[in-house]
Write a protein that binds this DNA or RNA. Structure first.
Lengths: 190, 190
DNA sequence: TCCGATTGTAAGCGACTGCTTACAACGCTA
DNA sequence: TAGCGTTGTAAGCAGTCGCTTACAATCGGA
């Protein structure tokens, strides 16, 4: 709420406005999904007139694309391959806060068409490509997809369905079980 | 399209009308998700006036609930515990046809509130409870949730994202990889 | 200081949503 | 065959959606 000291001080700052819209959109898309997040919600959360959303991003689809483009590759670019799986898992399991919620936005919005679908697919490909380097088996691509699918499923059940005991389980316990099982898929995953 | 010989012959048959609505709703919810399926779509697909949807089911939420209640417990009731995981996996991987698409409807609609959310949770609980009987470990519930999450994730990546190579992979290959890894979670899973 | 471009605002448009209502057609029973 | 409850239909209501437009406020460069 009071992340930055701004009362009437952020007026006429397009960069800050765009950032506020991206932040608000990332939060709401992750929480509610694409369909159930309205442009009015986003603008309201960002404290910005909703017309500016269309001025700076063109459409709701394009804004979603921008969110994934900004946040989606962050972890991908800053994590070594062996740790990508466990890092994504841990990031997903981390308690509320400024964590990277791209995964949730991703799966919350499955079913969208248009530009959003394209970038979603692209990011998925990149993750899988990295994970596929962790095994020498001939079906490395399939194994990587299955590992990625597990990540998505855990995020889905935990964050979206809120199913217990998974939703409230200790991240360490989950990591231990998942990584043990995953090692039969990707031998070099940490 | 031409499943039953009915031109002007099915008039004034409330049972058939309700069945047509349930079938159409199951198909569309699985394909597009809850939010992106409109009551007009459902009524159109069923060849039924949309007002009848509300007469017989009360609301779109209640119709979704009815779909899950009708189809969701089918496999649960007819499959022995040891085979539930692999049967669900195989059912999900089966080619197009009159297969049970409850899982897709389920995950496609994550995020809905109301009655739909309640029955969704209930069915998830029942699946997990059965899967939890397949291990003697103390954290059986968590292990079952993780297995269930994998199912959901695979369905998500395959059917919703359509990601290759997973989407086009041989069901036998997928089953082999998944079941091998799953056995570290649920020892008695087939 | 003035001007043009940029940034923010208010209002609303057309389309679509879930849902309701008023009514016609029909078929069973007496 | 008259009456009545059930089934099907057409039309529309109120609200929300993404998006657009017309305009005011503000700033930097001349």
């Amino acid at each position: 709420m009071a992340t930055q000291p701004e009362q009437a001080g952020r007026r006429r700052d397009s960069a800050a406005t765009q950032r506020a819209l991206l932040d608000a959109a990332a939060k709401l898309f992750a929480e509610r999904g694409f369909d159930r997040t309205t442009v009015r919600d986003i603008a309201g959360q960002a404290g910005v007139n909703q017309a500016l959303l269309f001025r700076y991003f063109g459409s709701k689809d394009a804004l979603f694309e921008a969110v994934l483009a900004r946040d989606g590759r962050e972890q991908l670019a800053t994590t070594p391959p062996e740790r990508l799986f466990s890092a994504s898992l841990r990031s997903m399991l981390a308690p509320e806060g400024p964590r990277n919620r791209t995964l949730e936005a991703y799966l919350r919005s499955s079913g969208s068409d248009g530009a959003a679908a394209a970038i979603r697919q692209e990011i998925g490909e990149e993750y899988a490509r990295v994970l596929a380097t962790l095994t020498d088996e001939p079906d490395a691509g399939l194994r990587a997809d299955l590992a990625l699918a597990w990540l998505m499923g855990i995020a889905l059940v935990r964050e979206v369905s809120g199913k217990e005991p998974l939703a409230g389980a200790d991240p360490d316990d989950i990591c231990r079980l998942v990584l043990t099982a995953t090692r039969t898929l990707l031998e070099r995953a940490e």
